[in-house]
Amino acid sequence: MPDIAAVKAALAAQRIETPSWGYGNSGTRFKVFARPGVPRDPYEKLDDAAEVHARTGVAPKVSLHIPWDRVDDYAALAAYAKERGLELGAINSNTFQDDDYRLGSVCHPEPAVRRKAVGHLLECVDIMDATGSRDLKLWFADGTNYPGQDSVAGRQERLAEALAEVYARLGDDQRMLLEYKLFEPAFYTTDVPDWGTAYAHCLKLGPKARVVVDTGHHAPGTNIEFIVAFLLREGRLGGFDFNSRFYADDDLMAGAADPFQLFRIMHE
């Protein structure tokens, strides 16, 4: 018989880090639907996060997204979070919205664009220093849409160079978390398409580089719990984005499509 008390204790002891953007407006891939009462700035997002933590008891951390959560004084923002019973978690970078990144960011064929992207990542590390955050979370929309559009091997080399520069900037207690995504928006090649690519780059960088598993970023039929077990064994599992999927990269609510899969992942 299962030890129900132990299961309940484990669930009560878990700590979930909610993303700041989750407290904003949401919608579909094609439109964001506005609703009343949505936070207008990072401080109001923390107010909402504090309410979530008060109701659940398991969500004491909030990750920030730059530039969406830019403020003049990050130390003050961290102090405000502490007053609300929260901590600031991972700092998420954004190298996918500027027009300059149409052909990529850290993998872009033009050095000036790559320099801009790396500069943003280094800014995020500065914000980590100011907030006391441990983790820099990276997801790149870099890739190509057509064969011959760029050198696949060359893009991997540019990616490695950028990651190495940012990794060298990390403090002793800071980590780099590299996320992968099967596709979107790149339709021919994506520069970090799977856990193996992310793991290979992290392995070369060093022990402070870890892989993020988004449970919605896999091809149909992928055994995600195997990936989790492997990365745990290698000491390279950095964290999760808990999403679910029916068809592709749906980003549905965790466990929506296959609740038992979520159980299997947690079991590992």
Rank of each mutant, 00 (worst) to 15 (best):
Y167K: 09
T197P: 02
A76I: 08
A10H: 13
G255I: 06
L88T: 06
G154E: 06
N25P: 08
Q97V: 13
L237T: 07
A160Q: 10
L205Y: 01
L138Y: 02
N223H: 13
K82P: 04
N223M: 14
P220E: 08
G119P: 13
L103A: 13
R102A: 12
N243E: 06
K31Y: 11
C107E: 15
D129S: 14
P2G: 05
F30Q: 03
G255V: 10
A186P: 13
S244D: 15
D98L: 15
V71I: 13
A10E: 03
V38N: 11
P60M: 03
N223G: 01
D126Y: 12
E17K: 03
A90G: 12
P109Y: 11
R35K: 07
S20G: 15
G143K: 02
T144R: 04
R236H: 09
G238I: 00
R158C: 07
R114E: 00
D250T: 12
D258I: 12
G27Y: 04
D100Y: 08
D98C: 06
D73N: 14
L88S: 09
F246Y: 15
D100K: 11
N145R: 00
M1R: 05
Q149E: 10
I127T: 02
A164G: 02
H53W: 07
W68Q: 12
F230T: 00
D258E: 15
S105L: 03
E165D: 09
G148Y: 11
D48H: 10
A153D: 15
A49K: 07
P39Q: 14
A75G: 15
D3M: 01
G216Q: 04
I16T: 06
D241Q: 00
I265G: 01
V212Y: 00
F230P: 00
E165G: 13
R114H: 01
D191Y: 12
L232T: 03
A13S: 12
A13M: 12
D173S: 11
H218I: 03
R115E: 12
E83N: 14
H108L: 11
V212S: 00
P42N: 10
F242P: 01
Q156P: 00
H217P: 05
G239I: 04
D99W: 04
S20D: 13
F33Y: 07
G221D: 09
R114A: 04
H201N: 03
I265K: 08
H218G: 02
P259C: 06
Y188Q: 09
S151F: 07
Y101W: 06
T190P: 06
A13D: 14
D249K: 05
A34W: 10
G255L: 03
E268M: 14
T56M: 08
G132V: 11
R70L: 10
F183H: 10
P207E: 15
A141W: 15
C124E: 12
E179H: 08
G89I: 14
Y74D: 08
C107F: 09
F260E: 02
M266L: 14
S26I: 03
K45W: 08
G238M: 04
D251Q: 06
T215Q: 11
T28R: 09
V71K: 03
A229N: 04
A79R: 15
A34N: 11
R55Y: 01
L64D: 11
L88Q: 05
V7N: 02
M176Q: 01
F96P: 07
D72C: 13
A256N: 12
P185I: 13
N223F: 09
D41V: 05
G119E: 10
I91S: 06
V125E: 00
A248E: 09
V228N: 03
V166A: 06
